[in-house]
Design a protein around this nucleic acid. Structure first.
Lengths: 114, 114
DNA sequence: ACAATAGTTCGCCATATGGCAAACAATATC
DNA sequence: GATATTGTTTGCCATATGGCGAACTATTGT
């Protein structure tokens, strides 16, 4: 399972940008060429290619070139890995949510730290 | 629902660092003070406080100061929001996974792009 | 051959990030 | 009241990020 630290770093980093999340959303509906993907955004192609590189480096997106056009597609395994990390944390959290509830009742409402 | 673009940006950004993910994992087991949280890491307090600020700015972590000690706690709503974004994408993906399977069969194995 | 199209690479810039040490609160403790 | 503890702020630095335009490569179409 590609669930190591470095791949989570790069996967979450890739997701931390609205352009890149939009690309993922688009790719979920099916593969697309670079210029197709770039078309909705008001940024230059070189800049867009950097985003694409971040996505490919993270393993969230793969691509292949046929002729002069590069077709990109989603690689959902890494997306699943990122989701799993959060899901695991939430599972632990929910396992002890009852104990936490007491703490919240006692402390949260008194917060004054900036 | 705090599911807007900016909060996803900052939530994913906060998650894109092993130190910060470790802090979250620690906080899931219960609240802790700043120095308690910082103790496992080989970085200075000022640096650690920057990570903490990123976590607080993202809404993943909250804190309150009593006396000279600041106690931090998890704020699971934002974690859930981040997980939801991924889960939604995966739901769409899985809804059309059959159609995609054909594409993968035909194209992925022929990839030659850098 | 030539021109158009699709991507890519290069150099530049401003800002953000992640690290440090040092100085500075503010609060407990002796 | 002096001292230790716990955070915090301030400056500084190197590197990464996200943007640009310009130049270049490689295919496809005429």
């Amino acid at each position: 399972m590609a669930n190591n630290i470095a791949s989570l770093d790069s996967a979450f980093h890739a997701l931390a940008d609205p352009t890149r999340r939009a690309v993922i959303s688009r790719l979920i509906t099916g593969p697309a060429s670079v210029s197709e993907l770039a078309q909705p955004f008001a940024i230059g192609l070189p800049t867009f290619l950097k985003h694409l590189k971040v996505l490919e480096d993270s393993g969230l997106v793969g691509s292949g070139k046929t002729g002069r056009v590069r077709v990109c597609h989603l690689q959902p395994a890494r997306l699943a890995a990122a989701e799993s990390w959060i899901a695991e944390q939430r599972a632990i959290w929910e396992g002890r949510a009852d104990r936490l509830a007491a703490y919240v009742e006692n402390h949260i409402h008194k917060e004054q730290g900036q």
